[in-house]
């Protein structure tokens, strides 16, 4: 018998390959039984694969760059400000935006696990949850940014590390690049990268 009931009681002992096949089987059955539609499955998957992405965060940042009043609301209450743009946090998740300035560079980590602001940044990069990043960026943030991400923060700029958790998740509002004065909000959003909103990258000038 391929699938007896025993693995149900010992889920952590199920080999990876069998889990893959079990997922496929369950998906086939829920579709065959009409319990869910393939459209529903595709929609939810796409939300995390494509739609959420960092572009929601990029829209928020671009709005902050062009609208000082919005930026202040974002810094005061990021959860509420993001909702103004239709970017909703997950249940129980509170967002906090931290602003890069000429004096301060912010970088985000989750030292405990891999808490991440999904609703604005989408899928997290694999390195974000690595023990190396979680440890190094706290101990030697400036060196980590330079060595691992090629981001040199000038000595006169302070580096602040923010530790996200399951209830409070940080993201960075990077500095608006130079020579972008004439760009529209949509054009500015195109410049904003996931890395810049984690704080391990800068927004390149157009």
């Amino acid at each position: 018998m391929v699938a007896d009931s025993e693995p149900l009681d010992r889920p952590y002992l199920v080999p990876e390959e069998e889990v893959v096949l079990r997922v496929k089987a369950l998906e086939a059955l829920v579709l065959e039984k009409g319990l869910v539609s393939s459209d529903a499955l595709d929609r939810i998957a796409a939300h995390y694969e494509d739609e959420v992405g960092p572009r929601h965060g990029a829209r928020v940042v671009a709005r902050a760059w062009v609208d000082p009043e919005f930026k202040q609301r974002l810094l005061d209450d990021a959860t509420a400000a993001c909702e103004e743009l239709g970017v909703q946090g997950l249940r129980g998740e509170h967002l906090r935006a931290v602003e890069n300035t000429s004096d301060v560079h912010n970088v985000v980590v989750c030292t405990l696990c891999s808490c991440y602001p999904w609703s604005v940044l989408g899928l997290p990069p694999s390195w974000y949850k690595s023990p190396e990043y979680r440890a190094k960026v706290v101990l030697e943030p400036r060196k980590t940014l330079a060595d691992d991400f090629g981001l040199t923060v000038p000595d006169e700029v302070s580096v602040r590390v923010w530790d996200s958790n399951s209830e409070l998740r940080y993201f960075v509002v990077p500095e608006r690049p130079e020579h972008a004065e004439d760009m529209s909000e949509d054009q500015l959003a195109e410049l904003v990268t996931r890395e810049s909103m984690i704080g391990v990258g800068a927004v390149a000038a157009p």
Binding site: V19, V20, V23, V36, R43, A45, Y48, E49, G92, W118
Partner: peptide
């Protein structure tokens, strides 16, 4: 509606494709 979060909070990371499919189901 198409971009609203699902009613089930996802894990912070998916380490393999099957994990995303399991979550989606």
């Amino acid at each position: 509606a198409s971009s609203a979060p699902s009613p089930l909070a996802p894990p912070a990371t998916f380490e393999a494709p099957w994990q995303l499919r399991a979550y989606v189901i």
